[in-house]
């Protein structure tokens, strides 16, 4: 089994944007061109997040997905503004393989449970936005990191798993966009609760950062954004580094 590299593209009005701590958004390119570039570099998966879906209460990435599946032959996950069974159906019909659900699943865990029943656990990712609130304490946030939920990260992970989520996407709000490395302390917390495959996200700046996080058993996949967008590295060089650290990757 290989560890996966997931290219994360946050999208606002037809542009890939990137902020810090999920805020202060700067345009970095065109979604389909960037997704295709990372695919050709050998990325294992593409994650498309509608960064402003919360404002409009809907996900607007269908046309980007439809175009992407014409020449990108790796799994595509879409997130942001997934509020109904119909939203999920639309994303999957456009060509997405999986959807990541956050806000609505926090408000109403039965929504995630129903989504799993309708589409199967393999299509449903429970998304967790983690913010450090004290020593060894992380709270789950929603609405793209703007609102605090009533759940600790640990509790939310348990709820998602009980409801049947096939995978988890955990983003550290504190580390997002900083390029200073992943939140490794949060991983210790997650280690004892996570039972399904997990994509870990937020803070990758160097190839070594990614190697460090993938060395943890609990992490199946590392998401990278800024690091690729700002050309600190490319997927090929990243995977070579990982292989040299004896981390199993697809080359």
């Amino acid at each position: 089994m290989k560890k996966r590299i997931v290219a994360r593209l946050d999208i606002k009005n037809e542009h890939v944007i990137k902020g810090i701590h999920l805020e202060g958004l700067r345009k970095v390119g065109e979604p389909n061109a960037m997704a295709l570039k990372y695919y050709r570099q050998g990325v294992d998966e593409i994650l498309l997040i509608d960064a402003v879906a919360a404002y409009y209460d809907r996900n607007s990435l269908s046309h980007i997905i439809s175009q992407a599946v014409q020449d990108i032959f790796v799994p595509i996950t879409v997130g942001g503004g997934i509020r109904s069974i119909e939203d999920i159906r639309q994303a999957l019909q456009a060509g997405a393989d999986k959807v990541a659900i956050n806000t609505r699943a926090i408000q109403q865990i039965d929504f995630l449970r129903e989504a799993v029943q309708v589409f199967g656990s393999q299509s449903i990712i429970g998304s967790v936005q983690a913010k450090k609130t004290g020593p060894k304490q992380w709270q789950a946030y929603y609405d793209n990191g703007r609102e605090a939920s009533e759940f600790s990260v640990r509790r939310l992970v348990e709820r998602y798993q009980q409801a049947g989520a096939g995978e988890l996407l955990v983003t550290s709000i504190d580390c997002d966009g900083t390029r200073k490395g992943y939140d490794l302390a949060l991983l210790d917390e997650l280690q004892s609760v996570v039972e399904v495959p997990m994509i870990y996200c937020g803070g990758a700046g160097t190839n070594e950062d990614v190697a460090k996080v993938l060395a943890h058993d609990v992490v199946d996949a590392a998401a990278v954004g800024s690091m690729l967008h700002y050309r600190n590295s490319d997927v090929g060089a990243l995977k070579q580094t990982l292989a040299s650290h004896s981390i199993p990757v697809r080359l």
Binding site: M1, K2, R4, D44, E167, V196, P197, D220
Partner: peptide, 11 residues
């Protein structure tokens, strides 16, 4: 022994 399922990823 428990097995992490679904089996998701490249193999």
């Amino acid at each position: 022994k428990p097995l992490k399922l679904p089996h998701i990823g490249w193999n």
